[in-house]
Design a protein around this nucleic acid. Structure first.
Lengths: 140, 140
DNA sequence: ACTTCAATGGAAAATAATTTTCTTTTAAGA
DNA sequence: TCTTAAAAGAAAATTATTTTCCATTGAAGT
């Protein structure tokens, strides 16, 4: 996985097998918790330590490669930094999806009302995903 | 403090002195962490236990009286449930403010793009508050 | 490839955060 | 008042996260 090695280099982190695995898991899952990172990593590296997961995730956050996502009613999850987006969480199946929407309007209005200079926005929407809506309709 | 007693009754919680104090602190501070609730409560009730804070806050959340606010880079804080609003956090002085803005537009667009039925939104904006902007300008 | 060295991984302990258990006390209705 | 279910507080238990310390290893330069 050459791409991930470069990605790590760019962020001044040594490309260790454990870090490459973490990045691969972030790619595959999009959003993943510490616990899930640990359990999945153990399949390939049975002796990995939880401290390794924590230390690496924290370093990746510091370096701007990864960001933490705090969601209502659940443990934080981690994702690769990419273009700004918001998070949708399904109440039923708990899946998490990213969507990209222009947030200029709301930010502009918030700046006008509050006088803040806004630097970043964190938006999470909770609801029912299309699949779960369909299932609910079929059961009725 | 009669109002708070009624508020607790309405949520089927016994009006204990500790709970009344918690509500009073939530009123005064708007947003407050477990640790600050504990420290401030101890001034009036020196023997209060942290478990009492946790248990009560969790009950108040269950009953819909209080909600947890998860912020980037800091401990969660708690606030009384009121009309929907979003949170502004200042990078410099760390103050937290509520502002009320119509979020229909963004929710509508998110529903259209994702197919989700959205039930609730959590929006936090990070930036520099007017006071800190002013201070920064004066120093320059 | 080989050497060297700073960074990393892993084990264990330490710390922090939260919840549970158990006993005593208390709010609130009869 | 009396009664009782709920709550408070102390302590222990659990869970989450960070730190320490030492052996190992990635990677930069021969």
């Amino acid at each position: 996985m050459k791409g991930s090695t470069v990605l790590l280099k760019e962020h001044e982190l040594k490309a260790t097998p454990q870090r490459l695995k973490i990045i691969s898991m972030l790619h595959t899952h999009g959003h993943i918790s510490i616990e899930d990172l640990y359990n999945e990593m153990r399949k390939e590296f049975p002796s990995v330590s939880l401290a390794t997961i924590y230390k690496n995730i924290n370093q990746m956050i510091q370096s701007g490669l990864v960001q933490e996502v705090k969601l209502p009613s659940q443990k934080p999850v981690y994702e690769l930094v990419k273009e700004p987006h918001l998070h949708m969480v399904c109440d039923k199946c708990h899946k998490i999806e990213d969507i990209v929407i222009g947030t200029e309007k709301i930010i502009e209005e918030a700046e006008k009302i509050s006088g803040y200079k806004i630097l970043e926005s964190f938006i999470t929407l909770r609801g029912i995903c299309p699949d779960c809506q369909k299932k609910a309709a079929e059961e009725a």
